[in-house]
Structure formats: structure tokens, C-alpha cells
């Protein structure tokens, strides 16, 4: 290791580590070809908690999130080193099937991306490919249950066979969340799930996130500090690929420990 990177070592302030977490992230570096995007991140994600990741654009928070279910595998030049454990199992181990991992760690994307199929087929897709149900009755129940959990059932129950692309933006995003929870994942990753939505749709989705946190572990990337404050128990602040501070959300927004966090919160950088 060169002397420069040694000097670059830094310490995350606050309390990044937890007792008995769902996921442990240890010394994770990510680089695209020759550009390093994430530097030495150590973080624990607690069970049935919402953790939000905030930071200025390009700080690497989305890249980091995508490491957690290996979506970065789809980018050839992306290289991840370090250790990420899900229930003490290394998700980057050779023996681990990435397909099973993604069934356990689901993902919701920035822009709603329903498949150009019917609403029903969108929600049923995960159950089909993972063989979660044995017959049509079970599948119907699963679809209905997932849509109820996302508060979408009342709105779409009469038009389950209509194309999902006909829904409004907010409905589409809730459908994508329903699609994700239909697989019954342990962790749900959300990459700026409300950035393409209007305020009313945002409020519905935020409410949904709070409700889901009772049963699921959720990691959410957001560029809205208010949103982070509203939905999450813990908040992690990223700056230029480094994890600067992790603390309880209330503390981050009222009494940040690190100067950079404070500057971001008060709007001097961003």
C-alpha cells in the first residue's frame, strides 16, 4: 500500500457499528477501472431498521447501496473489495449464488421500472422465478397480500390484467415495492425511490416505508434530508466516497459530530 493511501485513512465518526446487525460492511473499497469511488467503508445495518444514506451528488452513496446486493456485478469495470456479510455470510464469496442473494436483498430503483406486462404479472414475477408458490391460489394470495401491504390493492384490484405502464408514477413506484416484497426479502434497498415522484406520491411512499420497516430491514439512499429525517432511524453521511458520520437520525440533524456533516445539513455544501 502506498504512503498516500495510508495518509488518506480516516475514521468514521459517530456509531457505525451495532450489536447483532443484519448486515456488516467491513473495509469496502469500490473502484471503476482506475477511479476509486468508495474508500474503506465500515458500517452495520440494523435489523428491522431504516437506515438512510445522504450526501452530495456523486458522493458514492448509490454505488455503495448497489454493492449490498451485488448489482454492481452487472458493470464490467466495477471492482469491489472488502467484506460484506449478510447474517454472517459473505455475499461476495464464490459459493454464494448471486440470484439467491438478490432474492434475499431486494432493490427498488430511482425511476419506477415496472415490466411492460400486466400489474398481476409484475408482482407475480419474483414468485414465479423463485418457485415460491405451488399453485395459482397461492400465487393470487401472494399478489394480493403484497399489493395490500403497499396500499395499492384498492386502487388496482379491478384492473390487475391491465398493463403496469398505465399506472401513475407514484403507483408505479409502489408497484415496484410490492414486486420487491412479494419475494419476501430480508433487506430492501431503495435508491432514491421518490426522486421521480410528486410530493403527494412521495408522502404515500414514505408512509409505506415506515410501515414496511416493522418487518423488513431497509436501506434508503436519498438526497432529501427531510425524507431521511422522516423515515429513518439511523443516518449515514457520505462525502466524496468516504463515510463521514453515522448516527441516530435525530442526532445527525440536530447535533452533527463532523464539520462536513454540519456544512451539508446547514446547506453550505450540497
Amino acid at each position: 500500500m502506498s504512503s498516500e493511501t495510508l495518509e488518506d485513512r480516516y475514521q468514521t465518526v459517530g456509531s457505525p457499528l451495532l450489536e447483532d446487525p443484519k448486515m456488516r460492511i467491513r473495509s469496502v473499497d469500490v473502484s471503476y477501472a482506475n477511479n476509486q469511488a468508495i474508500f474503506d467503508v465500515n458500517l452495520d445495518i440494523g435489523k428491522n431498521q431504516v437506515i438512510s444514506m445522504i450526501g452530495p451528488s456523486g458522493c458514492g452513496k448509490s454505488t455503495f447501496l448497489r454493492c449490498l446486493n451485488r448489482m454492481n456485478d452487472t458493470i464490467d469495470i466495477c471492482k469491489v473489495t472488502g467484506q460484506i456479510l449478510l447474517d454472517d455470510e459473505d455475499i461476495y464469496s464464490k459459493n454464494l449464488d448471486v440470484v439467491e442473494l438478490r432474492a434475499r436483498v431486494g432493490m427498488v430503483f430511482q425511476k419506477p421500472n415496472p415490466f411492460p406486462k400486466s400489474i398481476y404479472e409484475n408482482v407475480a414475477y419474483g414468485a414465479r422465478i423463485h418457485g415460491l408458490t405451488d399453485n395459482k391460489v397461492q400465487l393470487d394470495e401472494l399478489v394480493e397480500g403484497s399489493l395490500i401491504k403497499c396500499g395499492l390493492w384498492k386502487e388496482v384490484q379491478d384492473r390487475l390484467e391491465e398493463p403496469a405502464t398505465g399506472l401513475s408514477g407514484g403507483q408505479q413506484q409502489r408497484l415496484c415495492i410490492a414486486r420487491a416484497i412479494a419475494v419476501n426479502p430480508e433487506v430492501i434497498l431503495m435508491d432514491e425511490p421518490c426522486s421521480a415522484l410528486d410530493p403527494i406520491a412521495t408522502a404515500t411512499v414514505e408512509e409505506l416505508i415506515s410501515e414496511l420497516s416493522e418487518n423488513f430491514t431497509i436501506a434508503i439512499v436519498t438526497h432529501s434530508m427531510q425524507q431521511a429525517a422522516r423515515v429513518s432511524q439511523r443516518t449515514a453521511y457520505f462525502h466524496l466516497g468516504k463515510l463521514i458520520e453515522v448516527n441516530d437520525t435525530s442526532q445527525v440533524f440536530t447535533n452533527p459530530e463532523h464539520a462536513l456533516t454540519e456544512e451539508y445539513i446547514t446547506g453550505r455544501i450540497g
Binding site: I129, H130, G131, L132, T133, D134
Partner: peptide, 10 residues
């Protein structure tokens, strides 16, 4: 106990 207990789909 059902298809889900197989390693993959039938």
C-alpha cells in the same frame, strides 16, 4: 413441503 424447497424450479 412444496417447490420452494428445491434448489431451483422444476
Amino acid at each position: 413441503g412444496g417447490v420452494r424447497h428445491l434448489a431451483t424450479l422444476p
